[in-house]
Write a protein that binds this DNA or RNA. Structure first.
Length: 597
RNA sequence: GCCGACGUAGCUCAGUAGGUAGAGCACAUCAUUGGUAAUGAUGAGGUCACCGGUUCAAUCCCGGUCGUCGGCUCCA
């Protein structure tokens, strides 16, 4: 799935993690295999930074079991057993694993025998399977592994969860144990430190701490944006509006509820129904639904008039409220919600405009992400030969166009073969935040199908009616998720233009309140988001509070400031920078308030 | 939806081998008029998520519901 080539060091870490997964499985077997009920192993691959092993265990494992498991793991590491690879025949493997009642391994072996693609990653050669032994532990595995268990001494178990065998919810639910492993103590320490830091800046925690948003059981999966969070939300929305308007987009507002017939035309009723909130008619049958996407509405608008090639590209921007009925278990903070808005747009273009339109969109993406200091990479998903709709030549041309767009834009990209939606190839953009974590944000999807389903046409220069292509694109992604990402990216310390409170004016004693009010009014007149802290409290306490709120500027006002008509300025990143003329201080804030994408 | 863990004051968290609960912060009142991360005193705050069951007695044990968290699946 990932076509990037691993570096030598990454490859070594993968081997360590893969081997540590074996060691962990062995430890779990030692602990939980009680003769009657065996631990049945499924799969245990390395992943980025971590590894896991899926297994069926006699009783659920909890984090309380970790110390004991780790203890057993350490003993095995200390024994410094070699990892020995052996090639077994299918019969040999079958016999061995069936004696030990390892039904998942047997299923994998059968899969290998039948050349089932899902099993290929587990271990194969032409006439048999590959197994690895380390001490008393033997596992079906194609490797590669480290040479000896001692190379796996820097690990830590992290969490447990459920996982379905073969990712199929109709199959057995297994226990998955996640851990991390590294080649040196320092790497492990750094990684654990990073996890701790990530926890500290978790947007759910900061959202509460900074009074940005909240959720309530009365509307699970929907966000209550508090005054401070709403400022950020509106700011992002306003910036997007302005940016797109300048790029020739037309903003529209469209209904939330539509008759079922629309969803049938768009295909959502068939493909997306489970994720939709629907409303019944008098008979109790679903008859309408809340929109999970804006596209059908925009199709109606396009179709409502006779369009000419001169109108294209025709771009409709919509920040409408979307609802998707996610299963309860999937909901999480701002990243996975049932109600959200996107900076959504649908661009209707002629096929020959695909490349240029993508160039423009990528230009926008660049400008937006640069503003937030978010580096990004892109992934191009191409046609799945078994599952696509439309004409192969159109697809080929479109894919070529997208690839050359990426190249011409000097973008770091990968190709994800056969991963496109059936209606068209797509580009996904992943940003990397300040902790080096990746999140999917922007998505740009070509769509050959909706224009077909809605029978959209435009009058071409020739006078013939031709079919436009639709580009779905959302560059923040959803406002909710994007705000979640930047909360963590900035660790809550928003740049001045986004900060809900940009400046706190604070008095050293009540005697200076009237000048402080003057200062506050002046800032307000400049549209600076200012709060006056004139409480009967010590200045240290006021500063402490404003710091905890991560306010970028504090103006401190005491006797000296009143006398000289100045303010003492304290900057979030620099601390106390001393007294200055009020006008100078205001200028400094204003310089940071007006940013353009 | 599924597996597991969790749900105690606005927040962060203690606690009870079953006898209706406690701290710090926040909040209120009073005193204090203070110069760059916490002035002091006093006070108010809880049907221990909700609904049932067991028990003389349930925040604690059992069952269910809702929600949250870690994942699976999916995706903005």
């Amino acid at each position: 799935m990932n076509t990037r080539v691993l570096t030598e060091q990454e490859e070594y870490l993968y081997r360590i993690r893969h081997s540590t997964a074996h060691i962990m499985a062995y430890a779990v077997q030692q602990l939980f295999d009680d003769g009657e009920k065996v631990v049945r192993l499924a799969i245990g691959p390395p992943i980025d930074n971590e590894f896991y092993y899926d297994m069926e265990v006699p009783r659920p494992i909890t984090p309380d079991d970790f110390p004991e498991i780790e203890k057993h793991m350490k003993a095995l590491v200390k024994a410094n057993e070699p990892f020995l690879q052996e090639d077994w025949t299918f019969d040999q493997a079958h016999e061995w694993f069936s004696e030990r009642n390892q039904k998942f391994k047997l299923e994998l072996i059968d899969g290998l025998l039948n050349r089932d693609i899902d099993s290929l990653s587990e271990g194969i050669s032409d006439d048999g399977v590959s197994v690895y032994r380390s001490g008393d532990f033997t596992d079906l595995c194609k490797g590669p592994h480290v040479e000896k268990t001692r190379e796996c001494r820097h690990f830590k178990l992290l969490r447990v969860s459920g996982a379905y065998w073969r990712a199929d919810q109709n199959r057995e639910q297994l226990q998955r144990i996640y851990g991390t492993a590294w080649s040196t103590k320092g790497e492990l320490r750094d990684y654990l430190r990073m996890l701790k830091e990530a926890e500290k800046r978790d947007h759910r925690r900061l959202g509460k701490q900074l009074d940005l948003f909240q959720t309530h059981p009365e509307s699970a999966g929907a966000v209550f944006w508090l005054p401070k969070g709403t400022i950020i939300y509106n700011k992002l929305a306003e910036k997007a509006r302005k940016l797109y308007q300048n790029e020739g987009y037309h903003e529209v507002r469209t209904p939330l509820i539509y008759d079922k017939s629309l969803w049938e035309t768009s295909g959502h009723w068939e493909h997306f129904r489970d994720d939709m909130f629907t409303f019944p008619n008098e008979l109790g049958d679903p008859a309408s639904g809340l929109k999970p996407m804006n596209c059908p509405a925009h199709m109606l608008i396009f179709k409502s008039k006779r369009r000419s090639y001169r109108d294209l590209p025709y771009r409709l921007h919509d920040q409408g409220v979307l609802h998707r009925n996610e299963v309860t278990g999937a909901l999480s903070g701002l990243t996975r919600v049932r109600q959200f808005c996107q900076d959504d747009a649908h661009n209707f273009v002629m096929p020959e405009q695909i490349e240029e339109e993508h160039n423009r969109i990528i230009g926008l993406i660049r400008r937006i992400y640069k503003t937030f200091d978010l580096p990004f990479r892109s992934v191009l998903s191409t046609r799945n030969p078994d599952h696509f709709m439309g004409d192969t030549t159109v697809w080929d041309e479109a894919e070529c166009a997208l690839e050359s767009v990426l190249e011409n834009n000097d973008l770091d990209f990968e190709i994800n073969p056969a991963d496109a939606a059936f209606y068209g190839p797509k580009l996904d953009f992943y940003v990397k935040d300040s902790l080096n974590r990746e999140f999917q944000c922007a998505t740009v999807q070509l769509d050959f199908q909706l224009p077909e389903r809605f029978d959209l046409t435009y009058a071409a220069a020739s006078g013939n009616m031709e079919r436009p292509v639709v580009i779905h694109r959302a560059l923040y992604g959803s406002f909710e998720r994007f705000i979640g990402i930047i909360i963590e990216h900035y660790a809550g310390a928003f740049p001045t233009w986004l900060a809900p409170v940009q400046c706190v004016v604070m008095t050293i004693s009540e005697r200076f309140v009237s000048y402080a009010k003057e200062v506050r009014n002046l800032l307000e007149a400049q549209q600076i988001r200012v709060v006056l802290d004139d409480r009967d409290d010590k200045i240290g306490a006021k500063i402490r509070e404003a710091r905890l709120e991560l306010v970028p500027y504090m103006f401190i006002i005491g006797e000296r400031e009143v006398e000289n008509r100045t303010v003492s300025v304290r900057v979030r990143e620099e601390g106390d920078i001393g007294a200055m003329d009020l006008s100078v201080a205001v200028e400094r804030i204003l310089a940071e308030v007006d940013i353009d994408f």
